[in-house]
């Protein structure tokens, strides 16, 4: 993600502090989820995500973060309660149906298709003509630093590169709502920090809404306008903390006082979440 600088910012500054009363784009109301095998994954989850927010879900393994994200994406159904997504609009050939894209916890690339084919898939499925999709695919690949790998099969990429291809596939949709399930979990610290910063740039420029799952407190504080802390067994929300950061967050923010203070607060909540588990 290094060509951001050349892109003109669209729609002004977004995000860091969404004004109250802005449109809710994702809503979970009293949502419970019990899987067919009896696992009670989520218990009474209430969450609202407003347009332009960057919300991180933070919590121990197995607390239902992926489950919640999949329900927002419409891939899993809630057992009770209601999920609503208002990401619709702009339905045209160039803008695929729903304006929602998800990056899964695994890269989930088609092994029989080359990188470009994988990234193009959502556009192909939406019937976007090649003349429109090709530049968008190339742009997305540039954003994640995979230019030159268009004609490579996924198995020839490293795990981190596969994950980046998967992110490019979501970016190519130019989504209004971006659901990301530990997208940078498989990357080294350095690359992760770089991609975090690039994602933040992109978010500021394009003004989409992000729900971001992570295990890393630092990543959550650095990126988010709000961090939602979850606990396991059964999965539930135990804290919802707005993060007030500077207008532009950079490496300096990572070592600032408020940053460290937020990390401490979140770490306390997480400790509580983990205690509740045992």
């Amino acid at each position: 993600m290094n060509s951001n600088a050349q892109m003109a910012p669209q729609g002004g500054m977004r995000g860091a502090d969404p004004s109250p009363g802005e449109e809710v784009v994702l809503r979970a109301q009293g949502v419970e989820k019990t899987y067919p095998n009896g696992t009670h994954a989520l218990d009474e989850v209430n969450l609202e995500v407003r347009r332009g927010e960057f919300v991180s879900l933070l919590g121990p393994s197995g607390c239902g973060k992926s489950t919640l994200l999949k329900m927002f994406a419409g891939i899993e159904q809630a057992s009770s309660g209601e999920i609503s997504a208002y990401a619709q609009g702009d339905e045209s050939m160039e803008n695929p149906s729903h304006g929602m894209a998800m990056v899964f916890q695994e890269a989930t690339l088609m092994p029989w298709s080359r990188v470009a084919g994988n990234v193009r898939l959502p556009l192909d499925l939406a019937g976007v003509p090649k003349s429109v999709s090709t530049p968008r695919v190339n742009e997305a690949l540039n954003l994640v630093g995979l230019e030159g790998f268009e004609n490579v099969y996924p198995r020839e990429l490293s795990g981190g590169m596969q994950m980046r291809a998967s992110i490019a596939r979501a970016l190519a949709v130019q989504p209004k709502v971006f659901l990301m399930d530990e997208p940078f979990g498989a990357l080294d610290e350095f690359t992760r920090n770089r991609l975090d910063a690039d994602l933040l740039d992109l978010w500021r420029q394009r003004g989409f809404t992000v729900v971001f799952v992570t295990h890393s407190i630092y990543e959550a504080v650095f990126l988010s306008s709000r961090v939602v802390v979850m606990a396991a067994r059964p999965g539930r929300i135990i804290a919802d903390i707005p993060i007030e950061g500077p207008e532009v967050r950079d490496e300096k923010f990572r070592v600032s006082k408020p940053f460290i203070e937020y990390c401490r607060v979140l770490s306390d909540h997480l400790a509580r979440a983990n205690q509740g588990e045992c």
Binding site: G74, F104, L121, A126
Partner: peptide, 14 residues
């Protein structure tokens, strides 16, 4: 079929 890919296709309204 890889269930993840199936979910991806469903998400993209295939």
């Amino acid at each position: 079929v890889n269930p993840g890919l199936l979910a991806l296709f469903r998400l993209n309204k295939a």
